[in-house]
Each structure stands twice: as structure tokens, then as C-alpha cells.
Design a binder for these strands. Structure first.
Length: 390
RNA sequence: GUGGUCGUAGCUCAGUUGGUUAGAGCACCUGGUUGUGGUCCAGGAUGUCGCGGGUUCGAAUCCCGUCGAUCACCCCA
């Protein structure tokens, strides 16, 4: 037996129904709201993510599937989607402002658990180019429509983390503060002190909560322009009856964000999706200077909380005479009628039972040339017109 | 990367202090019954007991390692 790779999934049956449902819903909402689907490579040069996400982020330092190909290139399986789209935009669309959507597999070398896999699916959108508050608004607003269409309940949390310069200043201040309270911090938080000070704010270790409570707040370090933008987005959301919760400790994991950050969180605290503004990413990559805002959803996380019933076939054909049943297939094909069928011609009783279990509406018995309506249990002579009329 | 729990048939699980040829239910297959068909009867196929080593006359069972699943930490979507 060859085992499958750790942290990967086979998505099938009820799970694949959910997957296709979420994907359908994703494209129905976003691709009918101005976004164009883009598919970028799963392989990228390591350099792209080292620069964009940040070299001392956990994703880059520990979690990338990285290897050298036979031409000596250092490549990775992409750990996220935004950087590739920014790279594309710089290559081909630098002067324009575009709305992109993407949906596909990402790879991170993590220890798997619920809602976290090594190969997983993200769907998201990005607006890249010259942006304003309406750009931010629509990404959030369209995201809400997507989640609502899936009948999910969630909370929108937002924050502003200011410019990258603001954040550096704040980070230094925070470092000084935590350094003096080092003894009161949990082991995990103490580890983060040197490289990732900001993330200590995210800790849900009760040991840390008291120290965090009295820590300097980011709002005191935000520059005026960023604050104004944040205020105007908040009033834009309020004016449109969009509920949100401000969370001044919402610091997202990727280094390239500035100003706006937001997350959609369900009742169990699972982050279904998140995003924010990344106005300096192109500069960090040294490929241009344009703004960006985007969101990404964890498709498996959504699949894990929705519940859908399997689709039932409308017409199921059975029979043990291979000539008769194949003739019927061709007849239905010619009339462009969809139908389900047994994988092979087993015992007629089994075939009938199978049709019933799948919840078929009509069963056509090609041995007898009859069609049965399983809902009201009536059987009549089969005539293709009956199906065409239905 | 760290820690807890767990790996026996496609699925859910039994399997005694180590003891013949490893079991049940569901699902599946065949024949019959029913014939308005889904019921019922009879029979059938299916396992590297996660993998590798060790102890033993003998291991699904005990020990070690390893792989995987799951949950949590960490991290994140």
C-alpha cells in the first residue's frame, strides 16, 4: 500500500459536492461583480515569497515546499496567491487598475489538524493599481455577499495597522515594553519577542493577557492620513449597514500589509478568510509602485462548516440486456437528456435499489421498456417524449 | 517544531491473562422470492491486523522504532 502524502486530502462524494458548491458560489459572486479569474503557476521562484511575505515570517522560514529543479532554479510550491498576482500585474498590466479573482491549491509545510492542511485551497480576490476607499469597500462588501450566499454566520473584524513606517516605530515601542515585562510572558511569547514582536498581541495564552492589556496601542502610532482613511472606511461601512467589530490587535501574518486589515470569523473562532491593503508590496518586490487590496478565503474551512445534501439524478436507467440499455443511452444522448446509470449491469434488483438510494426521480427499465416515477410509484410504458416534456 | 489520543474488511467496530485457519453488523456480489420491483431467503467474495524490527515454541495482543490520522500548542486561510 502506498500511503498518501501527509496533510493532503482526497476530496470525494459529499466533500466534493461541497467543494464544487463553494467554488460555484465563489465564481457566481465574484466573477459577476467585476473580477476576472486569473490562474497563476503553482511553482514560483523562492525569491518572490522571501521578499513579499518576509524572510523571518514563519511561512517563509519554516513552511515552504522548496526545492531545486534540474536547471538549478530554487523553486517553491506557492504558499499563497497574492504575490503571484502582483508579479503578473507588474509584468503585464502595470498602468492599469484590475480586479482579479483566483481559486486554487496552496502548499505549506505545517503540522496538519482540523482546518489546516499541507495542500489546501484558497479562493480570493485582489484589486491592484490605483486604489481608493471604494476599492477597500467593495472587497469587503463582495466578500460578505459570498459568505451570505453560503448561509454562513460570521463576524467582520477590522483594524488599521498604519503604514509600514508606523508599524516599525510601534514595533520598537512594543519591543521595549515587552522586554521589560519579559518575565511575565509565556514561553511562546518570549520566543516571538526578538523576531516577531507584533504577533505577541495575538496570543491567547492567559498568562500573556495581563501584559498585553497594558501594552502600548497601535492607534497612537498611526499617521494622520492612514487614520483618516480608516475613519472614512468605517463610516462607509456603517452607512451601508455593514456590521463590523474593531479589533486593534488584529495583526495579520504576512509582512506586506499596511493600513487596512480585516478577517471574517465564525462563531467558533475559525478564521474563514482575511485580507487587507498592501500598497508597498510592488515596491518591496522592486517591480513597480502600485497599490493593492485583497482577501483570501480558506475553502476547506468553509467546507467544514457548511452542510449540503447530495444531488440526486433525475433519470436513472437500468437493465441487464446490454444492447437494449446502450440503445437507450444513444436515444437519450440524441435528445440531450442527462441520465445516470449503473457502473455495470449487475442484478436488476441491485440496480433498482441503487437508483432508489441515490434518490432518482425516474427509473427507466430497458428490459421492460417502462419508466417508473419513484415519487408516486406509477409505472408506464417508456416513451422518450415523457422525459422531453419533463 | 512540541505534546495527548488512536491505527483490525469499503464503512462502524469486536477480538479474553499472548494460543489452531482473525470475527460481526452495514455495504457489495450471485441465485431465488417479490413483480409493481426498495422486502425477504440462501449462498459468496474481501484483510501484509498501518509499516519495520525485537521478545517468545507461538504476537492483532507485549517492547522499541517509524509512518499516518486526530486534537491542542505554534502558525495561519
Amino acid at each position: 500500500m502506498i500511503e498518501q502524502v501527509k496533510g493532503t486530502q482526497n476530496i470525494y462524494q459529499n466533500e466534493s459536492e461541497k467543494f464544487l458548491h463553494v467554488r460555484q458560489c465563489f465564481f457566481d459572486v465574484f466573477n459577476n461583480s467585476g473580477y476576472s479569474y486569473i490562474q497563476t503557476p503553482h511553482l514560483e521562484h523562492s525569491e518572490l515569497f522571501e521578499k513579499s511575505i518576509g524572510e523571518n515570517s514563519e511561512i517563509v522560514s519554516k513552511q515552504m515546499y522548496q526545492f531545486n529543479d534540474k536547471g538549478g532554479r530554487t523553486l517553491v510550491l506557492r504558499p499563497e496567491g497574492t504575490s503571484s498576482i502582483v508579479r503578473y500585474h507588474a509584468q503585464n498590466q502595470k498602468e492599469l487598475t484590475n480586479q482579479y479573482s483566483y481559486f486554487g491549491q496552496m502548499f505549506r509545510y505545517e503540522n496538519p489538524q482540523k482546518n489546516r492542511y499541507r495542500e489546501f485551497t484558497q479562493g480570493g480576490v485582489e484589486i491592484i493599481g490605483n486604489l481608493d476607499s471604494f476599492s477597500d469597500f467593495q472587497v469587503i462588501n463582495d466578500s460578505i455577499r459570498f459568505l451570505n450566499n453560503l448561509n454562513l454566520t460570521f463576524t467582520l473584524e477590522i483594524n488599521t495597522i498604519g503604514s509600514i513606517d508606523d508599524r516599525e516605530l510601534y514595533s520598537k515601542e512594543l519591543y521595549t515594553y515587552f522586554k521589560t515585562h519579559e518575565d511575565d510572558l509565556s514561553d511562546e511569547s518570549r520566543e516571538k519577542l526578538e523576531l516577531n514582536t507584533l504577533r505577541i498581541l495575538d496570543s491567547n495564552n492567559s498568562l500573556d493577557s495581563k501584559v498585553i492589556q497594558d501594552a502600548p496601542v497601535i492607534s497612537n502610532f498611526i499617521n494622520d492620513i492612514s487614520s483618516q482613511k480608516y475613519e472614512s472606511l468605517k463610516s462607509l461601512l456603517s452607512n451601508n449597514n455593514i456590521n463590523f467589530k474593531e479589533n486593534t490587535r488584529l495583526v495579520r501574518g504576512l509582512d506586506y500589509y499596511n493600513d487596512l486589515t480585516f478577517e471574517f470569523i465564525n462563531d467558533d473562532g475559525v478564521v474563514l478568510g482575511g485580507g487587507g491593503r498592501y500598497d508597498r508590496l510592488a515596491e518591496i518586490l522592486n517591480i513597480g509602485s502600485f497599490n493593492g487590496v485583497g482577501v483570501a478565503f480558506g475553502i476547506e474551512r468553509i467546507m467544514n462548516i457548511i452542510d449540503i445534501k447530495n444531488k440526486s439524478p433525475k433519470v436513472y436507467i437500468i437493465g441487464i440486456d446490454i444492447d437494449k440499455i446502450s440503445r437507450l443511452c444513444k436515444l437519450l444522448d440524441q435528445n440531450n437528456i442527462n441520465y445516470s446509470k449503473p457502473p455495470r449491469l449487475s442484478k436488476i434488483n441491485s440496480q433498482f435499489k441503487n437508483a432508489k438510494n441515490l434518490g432518482a426521480k425516474y427509473v427507466v427499465n430497458t428490459d421492460e421498456d417502462t419508466i417508473k416515477d419513484l415519487e408516486n410509484n406509477t409505472s408506464i410504458k417508456f416513451n422518450v417524449e415523457v422525459l422531453i416534456d419533463n
